[in-house]
């Protein structure tokens, strides 16, 4: 009788641990999705600002063309090419920014200020997303998660290597 009770207790503890672990993993998956949505949104906003800058009258036709192309490329890039496309946009923005800061109208100054704020945010967002992905992958590689298939049918999050020059 006593053994039976002990057995039941252990069974419930294991059950609790499994449900605890499943909740934990679910939370991580959720974090990967939200952090990606956040990062994606910020990057889209950056591309939009880039387009606005490209259409401002200060931008000469050549840099305007370059910036427009880079912005569209960043917007349309697939997830695999995203990092590369975003650093292309950073490069184009960097070129233009040097020229624009010299003499520009308040409207453009405002855009540039917004851009630098956005850049800081993107930096944090990248750190959060990369961390979420790494944690999720680390947890999913543990034995108990594999044996009991706690991840269910959720796809393994993509390790998205942002190169250092993305910004």
């Amino acid at each position: 009788m006593r053994f039976a009770l002990l057995g039941v207790a252990i069974f419930f503890i294991i059950l609790w641990y499994l449900s605890f672990s499943a909740t934990r993993l679910d939370r991580l998956h959720h974090r990967v999705e939200t952090s990606w949505a956040n990062l994606d949104g910020l990057l889209q906003r950056r591309a939009a600002i880039a387009l606005e800058l490209a259409h401002s009258d200060r931008a000469d036709p050549a840099s305007s063309l370059l910036l427009t192309a880079a912005a569209y490329q960043a917007r349309d890039a697939s997830i695999v090419n995203r990092s590369h496309a975003e650093s292309g946009l950073s490069g184009a923005l960097g070129l233009l920014q040097n020229d624009l800061t010299l003499e520009s109208k308040p409207a453009e100054q405002e855009l540039l200020r917004e851009l630098s704020e956005l850049t800081n945010k993107i930096r944090v967002a990248i750190a959060i997303h990369v961390d979420a992905v790494n944690r999720t992958r680390a947890v999913r590689s543990k034995l108990i998660f594999k044996v009991f298939r706690l991840a269910g049918s959720a796809p393994l999050p993509v390790t998205f290597e942002f190169e250092d020059d993305v910004l």
Binding site: S19, R31, N38, V124, I128
Partner: peptide, 17 residues
């Protein structure tokens, strides 16, 4: 950082466990 932590919505509640 607060703003980014709040993406995904929902306030603070007691954990289900």
């Amino acid at each position: 950082v607060y703003e980014m932590a709040m993406v995904g919505g929902g306030g603070v509640r007691l954990a289900s466990d």
